[in-house]
């Protein structure tokens, strides 16, 4: 188990260093950052001074080492645009994205798995066919279109839900949350549904196909032959066996929910990291962009690590493999 974890952590480190290299290269390919910092009438001497201050005249490996070292300490430098440390800017934006992504992921999982199980067990029922048809829509419509449609129906036409922003939030000192106010929840619903809808349909279809496969397995037939209740067979024996691929996909999807929240955040003007990233692209704010890249990669890697540990918890066969 320990060896298994250590091996996984080592693999994660390699990924992170590769991403760091990409984030670092970003700086070197998008023109001279000094130009961004000084006015047009700065003298060459002034430019050299800034270059020296920022360490931009050091050899590339030294700069890279410094970049990684600082990144490991969450120091991504100053934002060109807002003239604040990037870490501070992200700390202010992260809760918004995190709450949105988690709500979307929970929405997708808590509805997707039961729907998948239902459509897997009752293959030919009318309700299953309805679910599957609807899920086709969810899979084929692009996120921004779903967002705009939801705004049109629920905000413009019906006027039930607000269409942009986070609404009232409560500052807990280290974390600004929208979970504690009614207004915060009202603002969360549309973006979370928009963001989670694709994942919901994906999870439904995945669980369904896994269920169909597992229900054909001999051990399911044997479980029925032992007279176990339908409930025990479907949920105890079948569902648990579908979980390995489902956990993998949910894990990866949580990563991509965070990474691709930016479209939803843009549509709903949600003040999260995605919106911050889009703004920083417009103003070529390289430190913010590279930090975003870095953070998203880190979250993918962290989630994958958790998923790997979950496998071991679900499937005893991997436990044996890992310890030997």
């Amino acid at each position: 188990m320990l060896a298994y974890s250590i091996r996984r952590i080592f693999e994660a480190l390699i990924v992170m260093i590769t991403v760091a290299a990409l984030a670092f290269v970003l700086f070197r390919f998008v023109g001279d950052p000094v130009n961004q910092l000084v006015g047009q009438d700065a003298t060459l001497a002034e430019r050299d001074l800034i270059r020296k201050e920022l360490g931009l005249d050091d050899p590339v490996p030294v700069q890279f080492a410094r970049f990684v070292w600082k990144a490991a300490h969450l120091d991504f430098g100053m934002s060109y645009q807002v003239k604040q440390p990037v870490a501070t800017v992200f700390a202010a934006r992260f809760p918004a994205t995190f709450e949105l992504a988690m709500t979307a992921a929970l929405f997708a999982t808590l509805i997707g798995i039961p729907m998948g199980v239902y459509t897997g067990i009752h293959r030919d029922s009318f309700l299953s066919k309805t679910f599957l048809t609807l899920s086709l829509i969810g899979i084929s419509l692009p996120t921004f279109l779903i967002g705009i449609l939801l705004i049109w129906v629920f905000s413009t036409r019906l006027g039930w839900l607000p269409s942009f922003g986070r609404g009232d939030t409560v500052d807990l000192g280290f974390w600004r949350t929208g979970f504690l106010t009614r207004d915060g929840w009202a603002h969360l619903i549309l973006p979370a549904v928009t963001l989670g809808l694709f994942q919901l349909t994906l999870i439904t279809r995945l669980v369904r196909s896994q269920m169909l496969e597992v229900l054909r397995a001999d051990y399911i037939k044997f479980a029925r032959a032992r007279g176990l209740t339908d409930r025990a067979v479907n949920f105890g024996h079948a569902l648990k066996n579908t979980l390995i691929p489902v956990i993998t996909v949910i894990g990866l999807q949580v990563g991509s929910i965070i990474a691709f929240a930016l479209i939803t955040e843009f549509v709903f003007q949600w003040p999260g990291m995605g919106l911050l990233f889009l703004q920083s692209v417009q103003s070529a704010d390289i430190p913010v962009m590279s930090a975003y890249l870095f953070l998203v990669a880190f979250m993918f890697v962290a989630i994958n690590f958790v998923v790997d540990l979950l496998y071991v918890w679900v499937d005893p066969r991997i436990r044996i493999l890992g310890s030997s």
Binding site: D218, F222, R224, A225, R226, G227, L228, H237, R317
Partner: peptide, 25 residues
Amino acid sequence: MRRVRGKRIGMVFQDPLTSLNPLYR
């Protein structure tokens, strides 16, 4: 009929490798 299965009629299948659920002791 479910109550009959296991309780009054037991069944043994061909392949012991796949008859047992791998995830349960």
